[in-house]
Nucleic acid binder design. Structure first.
Length: 279
DNA sequence: GTGCTTGTTGGCCA
DNA sequence: GTGGCCAACAAGCA
């Protein structure tokens, strides 16, 4: 389960393990790049003794609130993961942050260190959290807002535009391809060339993919599987995009792959035509 | 060894 | 100033 839902998956994992629990100690790899711009030692000292109050996920990020006005933000980057281990967990090489509680240890691990840990003290949530664009499931995400954004990025391929977090918070490479495939829009189409009906289809599929992705997570209740990709139907492009000789689940025809907007992109040529249909 | 990989950022250029 | 492109970041995997 990609991106947006990934943050929700890992948020839930830590939340279930430790909400209401007191942090008895914190370990940090304070020279790790994931702490860029953050005082890791101050974070470690402040969190020791604090209690986890609640948490939320937005876009690809998570925010954990602790007693004493402490806010811990985590972005998973490309390879970050949140785990739960035994209370006496000994950090491995890539475990950059470990919060110990009586029930277990909360572990942030990230080999490539494109992820990020942020920290804030205060009564209000930090601006790096509140500045995240409104969810695609919120009323602020309207077809008009999408249309206006596409016009501003008119010459860029739609695939590249879909990755812009300021308008599509939480969409990553997999979700972008999934949405374009459902909306039957070729990923290389310049954003400004989409007709109104196509913009509306794009908007609708953004919301649908978000809802379905999150529902797959929420439907798991309190029993999270170790692999967050469990349970994605084979009717999604997602489960076919990397198969050798992969075929479109709708048309049965071969899928295509190419680099678009700097990212490997998968689409179904039989379904997503570059040349606009006659109107 | 080579060539990929779920993301973001800053620098360059038009 | 704005928009678009691309390399860089770092490590693991096939």
């Amino acid at each position: 389960m990609p991106e947006l839902a990934e943050a929700e998956f890992y948020r839930k994992r830590w939340h279930q393990a430790a909400v209401g629990q007191r942090v008895t100690g914190a370990l940090v790899h304070d020279r790790a790049k994931v702490f860029r711009g953050t005082d890791a030692a101050a974070l470690r000292d402040a969190l020791a003794g604090a209690r986890m109050i609640n948490s939320e996920a937005a876009a690809k990020q998570m925010l954990f609130r602790f007693s004493g006005g402490l806010w811990l933000g985590i972005h998973l980057g490309m390879s970050g993961e949140l785990r739960v281990g035994p209370s006496d967990h000994v950090p491995h090489r890539h475990d950059h942050l470990v919060l110990q509680t009586r029930r277990g240890a909360l572990i942030f691990t990230d080999p490539r260190m494109f992820g990020r840990v942020q920290f804030h003290q205060g009564a209000e949530p930090p601006t790096w959290w509140t500045r995240i664009a409104p969810s695609m499931l919120s009323p602020a995400f309207t077809p008009d807002a999408v249309a206006a954004f596409l016009q501003r990025r008119a010459r860029a391929p739609i695939k590249a535009v879909m990755l812009m977090q300021e308008r599509f918070p939480g969409i990553g490479n997999w979700m972008a391809d999934e949405i374009l495939w459902r909306a039957t829009i070729h990923p290389r189409r310049p954003a400004g060339t989409l007709r109104p009906a196509e913009v509306r289809a794009l908007w609708r599929e953004c919301r649908r993919v978000c809802r379905l992705a999150l529902a797959t997570i929420a439907g798991r209740g309190n029993d999270l599987p170790p692999d967050l990709n469990v349970g994605i139907p084979n009717t999604w492009l997602f489960n076919h995009r990397w198969e050798a000789g992969g075929r479109c689940p709708k048309t049965g025809k071969p899928l295509a792959r190419a680099e678009i907007g700097g990212r490997t992109t998968c689409w179904s040529p039989a379904r997503q035509k570059y040349n606009q249909a006659k109107s």
